[in-house]
């Protein structure tokens, strides 16, 4: 595995809670006491369905939330400094230089009336960093775009190239952490694959850490070191990517994994996960997954599970609660 999991993480998220103010009603808790570590040079994937709070979590970490969303608890320590307590001026200095964010849709993230090069210049001018004039061309070459396109406007580039240009911009100051919100979701499968390979290569070459949010679990299976599975605002499983894929400990991770038809091997009937994700304004009692869970039992609607260690991973499932004397685990038997 790349990335050293030893030592102090560069990003430490503790007990982070984000609420959306609903104006009078009960606030919607979109991110509920999330803990997360990212070590130097590590690739951490966050997966979950729409509405599970994964993008809100990422925005909260990058301090990009706008009302009605607000951080109501917890801390985000980046290289020892608490970002939550930091003022805008200090944050502005940190952004792009020490951590950068690549948004989901490069179409909307790039200014349509300015050339790529002048947008790079803006980012450089906003920081008092000594950057050589060659740097924009250098980062463009890094992501595999001819520097001639620094003169191009966003509409002259294809979707894949625009997304690459965004990544080039994120690399301007060689940050220690790049936060990515579904950067490949607007791309075709071939372009998606080649962008993922490129991100991974750059990461290994330049040594930055990546926090990668996606709804597509299969996409990051080959790229991330650690995997965080979110459901209804909570982390339901956390561990080394391979361990989670080989032996998902939480019924939700397992269901998510089984929802992908494969292009190889025997064709099997799949069921997906019945029902739909819960409304966060009124989450189910006890374990939030119990109404959709195939292995729910009597305690599930009553007791709120915590993250319990299960082998190499952690899972928020009562089946793995320490008090339970290793039950007949119906969740596992299907894993072949």
């Amino acid at each position: 595995m790349h990335g050293n999991t030893e030592g102090k993480p560069i990003l430490e998220v503790r007990d982070l809670t984000v609420e959306y103010d609903t104006g009078g009603g009960r606030p919607v808790v979109a991110v509920d006491s999330v803990d997360l570590d990212v070590h130097a040079g590590e690739f951490v994937g966050v997966v979950g369905e729409s509405g599970c709070g994964k993008s809100t979590l990422l925005f909260a970490i990058a301090q990009l939330l706008s009302p009605p969303a607000a951080i109501t608890g917890g801390s985000v320590h980046f290289q020892g400094q608490d970002l939550v307590a930091m003022n805008e001026k200090k944050l502005a200095a940190l952004r792009w230089r020490d951590y950068s964010v690549v948004m989901q849709s490069a179409m909307n993230a790039l200014n349509p009336v300015k050339s790529i090069g002048s947008q790079f210049k803006d980012a450089i001018m906003a920081h008092n960093e000594p950057v050589s004039d060659e740097r924009p061309a250098e980062v463009m070459r890094l992501v595999g775009i001819d520097p001639i396109h620094l003169k191009s406007y966003p509409h002259q580039l294809s979707g894949g190239m625009r997304q690459r240009a965004m990544i080039a911009m994120a690399l301007l100051f060689t940050p220690d952490l790049i936060i990515m919100d579904e950067p490949t979701s607007a791309l075709d499968v071939v372009a998606q694959r080649s962008l993922m390979v490129q991100i991974k290569e750059l990461q290994q070459r330049l040594g930055f850490a990546v926090l990668f949010v996606t709804h597509d679990m299969s996409l990051i299976s080959h790229f991330s070191d650690q995997l965080v599975v979110m459901y209804a605002g909570q982390v339901v499983e956390f561990g080394a990517t391979r361990a989670v894929f080989d032996e998902p400990a939480h019924p939700y991770s397992k269901g998510l994994l089984d929802a992908f038809p494969s292009i190889r091997g025997p064709k099997q009937p799949l069921t997906g996960i019945p029902g739909s994700p819960p409304n966060l304004a009124d989450p189910p009692s006890g374990c939030r997954f119990h109404p959709r869970c195939p292995v729910a039992f009597a305690d599930c609607p009553k007791i709120e599970p915590e993250l319990y260690p299960v082998g190499a991973v952690q899972a928020r499932c009562l089946l793995h609660a320490p008090g339970r004397s290793q039950p007949a685990e119906p969740a596992r038997e299907v894993t072949s």
Partner: peptide
């Protein structure tokens, strides 16, 4: 062939193949 190679398959063993194709139709 190219299309099939690009399909992510979580069940396949870990491999990061390097391709020259930038995937622009």
């Amino acid at each position: 062939d190219l299309l099939l190679g690009a399909v992510p398959d979580p069940r396949a063993p870990l491999s990061v193949a390097v391709e020259g194709d930038t995937g622009e139709p």
